[in-house]
Amino acid sequence: MLFDHVHNIAAVFDNQGKYDEAMQWYERALTGFEKALGKDHPSTLNTVHNIAAVFDNQGKYDEAMQWYERALAGFEKALGKDHPSTLNTVHNIAAVFDNQGKYDEAMQWYERALAGREKALGKDHPSTLNTVHNIAAVFDNQGKYDEAMQWYERALAGREKALGKDHPSTLAIAECLRPFKNN
């Protein structure tokens, strides 16, 4: 479909940090998807989600939250509460709160994402482990270092099992643990 290509062009600009261009292409894709497939079609909702991510990347959290909430409502309706696309949006809502320093809200949303991802994808799936890692970071940011270390260790063990000891994602988590090991 033509609008898949339009969406992909937007994603390229998004990945380059060219947010104005990305937004123009995402809006074009959104208009096309809504007209051709409807407001609650997964392709439409993916575009809504990505528009939210552009706002999130720009630090425009109120706008990001509005778009994430729209995506979440649509994904829950179209795909269910435990579908990976729904859970990605739940995870990203948590990240918006995390980026704002709203740790209690972030933790509530990360816990929802974690429970769903463990159920839908398993404990050692990379998406599940991303949520585990982000929960560790919330504890770390709050100065709750014992809890942070437990969650970082869980993320590290899962990454080693799933990806190997030398994978860049594994090494990134090992780096997060280094300050705890040096004390």
Rank of each mutant, 00 (worst) to 15 (best):
P179L: 04
E160V: 14
L171I: 12
A155V: 01
R159T: 03
L37V: 08
F33Q: 06
N130K: 01
K165I: 10
F139N: 02
Y110V: 11
A162D: 03
E34F: 03
A115Q: 06
G59P: 10
A53Y: 11
S43G: 01
A174S: 15
P168H: 02
E147N: 08
Y68S: 00
S85F: 12
R112H: 14
E63D: 15
S85M: 00
R117D: 11
A120L: 10
M23I: 08
A115E: 14
L37T: 04
D166F: 05
Q108I: 12
D146N: 13
H5G: 15
M23L: 15
T47L: 07
V90I: 14
L171V: 15
L2I: 13
G80C: 11
E105H: 02
P42Y: 07
A29S: 13
E111A: 14
Y145M: 00
A162R: 04
F139D: 01
S127V: 04
D104Y: 06
R178K: 15
H5S: 14
F97C: 07
Q100Y: 06
V90G: 02
H125R: 01
G143E: 04
K77E: 08
V138R: 03
K35D: 09
T170W: 01
G59W: 12
R70A: 04
W109P: 03
V48W: 05
S43M: 08
D56A: 07
W109K: 02
E153H: 09
K102Y: 12
Y152A: 05
F139H: 05
K181F: 00
D124E: 15
A157K: 02
H167N: 13
W151P: 09
G164P: 03
K60S: 10
A136M: 06
G17P: 15
S169E: 11
H167Q: 06
K123Q: 12
I93Y: 13
E76R: 10
N141W: 03
D146E: 13
Q142V: 05
M107H: 05
G38M: 13
N15M: 12
S127C: 12
H125S: 13
A29W: 06
Y103N: 09
H49A: 13
I93W: 11
H83P: 03
Q24V: 15
N134H: 03
Q16Y: 14
G17R: 12
L72K: 04
A106S: 14
I93P: 05
L163E: 00
Q100N: 00
R112Y: 12
K144Q: 04
I173D: 10
L114I: 15
Y61K: 00
I51A: 11
N15W: 09
G116A: 11
A157C: 04
A120K: 03
N50H: 06
V6I: 15
N92V: 08
L2W: 07
E153T: 08
F13N: 09
A120F: 09
K39R: 08
T47M: 00
R112E: 06
N141H: 05
G74M: 09
F180T: 07
D166G: 02
N15T: 10
E34L: 02
A162G: 08
H133I: 02
